[in-house]
Design a protein around this nucleic acid. Sequence first.
DNA 1: TCTTTGCGCGAACGAACGTTCGTGTACTTG
DNA 2: CAAGTACACGAACGTTCGTTCGCGCAAAGA
Lengths: 189, 189
Amino acid sequence: MIDGFMLTKEKIYIEAARLFQEKGYAAASMRDLADRLELRPSSLYSHIRSKENLLEKICFENAERYGALMQECLALELTAAAKVEYLLRQHIRIALKHPTSITVFNDEWRHLPPVSLKRFIGMRKVYEENFCTLLSQAMQEGHFRSFDPLLVLNTLLSSLLWLHRLDARATLPKEDAVIDLLLYGLRST
Amino acid sequence: MIDGFMLTKEKIYIEAARLFQEKGYAAASMRDLADRLELRPSSLYSHIRSKENLLEKICFENAERYGALMQECLALELTAAAKVEYLLRQHIRIALKHPTSITVFNDEWRHLPPVSLKRFIGMRKVYEENFCTLLSQAMQEGHFRSFDPLLVLNTLLSSLLWLHRLDARATLPKEDAVIDLLLYGLRST
DNA sequence: TCTTTGCGCGAACGAACGTTCGTGTACTTG
DNA sequence: CAAGTACACGAACGTTCGTTCGCGCAAAGA
C-alpha cells in the first residue's frame, strides 16, 4: 500500500501499474485493484475512465518520457558514440527508478486498444530509427566497430530488459559496470 | 493454419503456442483456439486436459530442452569460456527455430498454477546457477574480463530476448555476428 | 454383423469480468 | 442555513470465460 498524503486518483495509477506488473494486464482485474486500495470496484470509476485508459496512461507516459529523452539527447553537442552512451545511461536510470511503470510499458502495450496501439507503435518506431541512426553515425565516425545497426540496436535495448524486473530486495547493479559491459565490445579503440 | 498430416492433438499444441504468443496466455480464450483449428470449443477437450495444462506442456517442454542442453554442455571437454560460447550459440538457434514456443516459455510462465510455477522456478534457478558458475570459471581462467557474474548472466540472457520475437518476415540475424557482439567485449585478450 | 472406440458437436453450467446507476453522506461554498 | 460537489457504495447489467455432459456418427476390431 501507499502511505502518506496522496490523491486517490494518483494512488489508483500507482497501484494499477504494480498490479499490471505482477499479474499482467489481462489477468489483472478491477476487483483486484479495488481490493488493494481498500475500495469497492464501483468506486474506482469516480476517478478513472476505464481499465483500458489506465493502461494507455501508463504506456504513453513512458513513451513520452523516452521521446523527450531522445530530443534532449539529439540536441547535445556530443559525438554520436557519446550520445549512445548517454542514452544507455538514461535507460538504466529510468529502468531502476520506475521499474513497475516501465515493466507495464515494455510488456503490456500490446493490450492497448487498436487506435492507441497504432500510435504507440509509431512512437516506438521513431525512437528506434533515431537510435539506429546514431549507431550508424558512431560506426561511420570510427568510434564503434562496424555491425548491422539494427542488430546492435535490438541487442542493446534487449540487454537492459532485466533491470526493471529486478526484485526490490536485489542489490542494484552498478551503472558504470553495465555500460562498460555493453559498450566495451562495441568500441573500435 | 497447419497443413499436411498431423494429429489433432499436435495441431492443438502448436496453435495454442501461436495463440499464447500473439495474445498472451490470459487474453487468449479457448474459443479463439477452437476457431483457429476449425473446431467447436467443446471438441478441444476430447484431446487436452485444460488450458492450464497446455501452458504447462509448453513451458516444461522448453525448460527440459534447456536443462538437457546444460547437461550436454557440462559434459563437453572444453574450457569454461568455450562452454559459454557453446551455450549462447544454442540459445540463438533454439530461439530462431522455436520462436513461438520460446516466447510462451519466456513470457507466460508466471501464469502457471502454483505447484507447477514452483517447479518451473526451481528448474530455472538450477540452470542459472550452472551458467553463472561457468562465467565465474571463465573469469578465473583468465578468458573473460572480471565482472559480477550475475550481472553478466542477466545481461547476456536478456540480450537474446528479441530473437524469438522477430517477425516471420524479418531477415534472420547472423549467428556469428550476434556471438561476436556479445562476447568480444567480455573476452580479456 | 455387432460392438467398441474416438471424436466432433450443441447446449448449458457457474464463475468472473468491466462497467453503470441511483443513493447516501460528508464536506465545501455562498 | 441552503445548495452544491465529491466520492464511496450496493446492486445489478450484459458479456465472456473455462469447462462438462450427453448425443450422434463413423471407423475399427471381433
